[in-house]
Design a protein around this nucleic acid. Structure first.
Lengths: 158, 158
DNA sequence: GTGATCCGCCGAATTTAATTCGGCGCGTTC
DNA sequence: GAACGCGCCGAATTAAATTCGGCGGATCAC
């Protein structure tokens, strides 16, 4: 993980479809070298994959909410089962498993408020292990375009 | 936005580097057609871009936290300035602007607990407009691999 | 009902990119 | 100081992206 690898990662975070040639040129290395480097980054699990970013509005899912959830008992199987099943619901964007008074934050999307309500009634009110949940509407979700050229100290190494 | 477009979006969400040919084959259409469709999805803003997904661990950022933040006054300029500056910090993954008692949830990453603490002291304790913040460690962050083949009702239309 | 028009899809041709692979240079080892 | 290993390079090959002319099928006017 030298600075060339960091640069590859960084550029691909900004544009996941950057061509290998263009990337090589930006870095001043040969395309074949760049390709091999990038392959290794995949193999090592540093680059985990690529995703298209899609407008939730265009997908007819303009309403977003965060659902702070508590479950009991907090046993390993119960936690894992909750995470797994919830992550797979199409309305769920992501699940944060947390320390603190809330066990999870579940980021959900819906067509409108009615569908959000219906979703919660169907999938949260129903579940036995959920002992409480609080829903907060998300007005806006901004994402860091870069995820950092790594903070100055955190660089170097393997 | 017919079912072919939906399928394109869906496949590219799963694998943002799927080749145009492979995609066309999956859908049973000609590559040239597929290319034109995909271009239109970009032009219409439905596909907003592509990103490599990178292991935070590999980037030496294994610690994650959610910072529930309140600012005052809740004036448009103050809110916008907070969102903008915070989003650009390299430790910040994303910012949720919320309804409810917390104004924002800020998802941050750090090398370790010490760096997290330093980050908060430097960027949260300092700021005048921040009247309170609560930090919760994130044990795990799971993401829906698909973001849904759209819930049955939410489909069709432009 | 019929003809003109428009739109999207197709496939061949061309341009561009990905991938492979043999060889070279440098740093390390013994 | 010679042998080895590793990573980089660039030419050659394979595959993909892109362009573009033409072919329906649907729509609309008359």
């Amino acid at each position: 993980m030298d600075e060339v690898d960091s640069a590859i990662v960084h550029h691909l975070q900004l544009d996941g479809r950057l061509s290998n040639r263009a990337l090589a040129e930006k870095l001043g290395i040969a395309p074949s070298t760049c390709l091999e480097r990038t392959r290794l980054l995949h193999r090592r699990g540093i680059i985990q994959g690529y995703r298209a970013q899609v407008s939730l509005r265009a997908l007819n899912r303009p309403v977003q909410a965060m659902v702070a959830t508590q479950i009991r008992p907090l046993r390993r199987e119960v936690v894992a089962a909750f995470e797994k099943s919830v992550t797979q619901l199409p309305e769920v964007v992501s699940v944060y498993t947390m320390a603190g008074s809330d066990d999870f934050l579940v980021h959900v999307t819906a067509q409108d408020i009615d569908h959000l309500h219906a979703f919660l009634l169907d999938h949260f009110t129903e579940r036995r292990e959920i002992i409480s949940f609080r829903t907060s509407i998300i007005y806006q979700h901004l994402t860091n375009p870069v995820l950092g050229p790594l903070p100055p100290t955190a660089d170097q190494r393997t």
